[in-house]
Design a protein around this nucleic acid. Structure first.
Length: 111
DNA sequence: TGCTTGACATAAT
DNA sequence: CATTATGCCAAGC
């Protein structure tokens, strides 16, 4: 289980901070995790996460607003379902309104 | 220890 | 719109 100190651990921690009903891009999560520009590591970490993880990995999307996984495939459909369950409407494979993204910081504004 | 890969981002072609 | 190129770097082999 992710040794403390590993980048995985930091990344999953940041992902856990994403408020419900919101999404963040890989680059944004990376930046908040203290890894500016290391968006790839975020995806790498998420892929490593177990199925029973408590990390809402589904809230992590591409910068343009879209699921990296194949939306028409199992994992993609699963993520879309989770996002819609949180209130995030996905109209297409790369169509997510910017209003769902975290504006600046993860500091939950508490709506 | 060095090369390859990768749930990315962005610009250019 | 698809592909290419570059950056940036950890993990896997």
């Amino acid at each position: 289980m992710t040794v403390p100190g590993s980048l995985y651990d930091r990344i999953c921690e940041v992902v856990c901070r994403i408020p419900r009903g919101r999404v963040a891009s890989y680059g944004q999560v990376a930046a908040e995790a203290g890894l500016p520009g290391h968006a790839r590591l975020v995806g790498y970490a998420l892929h490593n996460l177990p199925d029973d993880t408590n990390v809402p990995w589904h809230r992590v999307v591409k910068a343009r607003g879209g699921i990296s996984l194949d939306i028409e495939s199992g994992a993609g459909r699963f993520q879309r379902a989770l996002l819609e369950a949180e209130g995030v409407i996905i109209s297409g494979p790369d169509v997510i309104d910017p209003r769902y993204f975290l504006s600046d910081s993860f500091t939950d504004p508490m709506e």
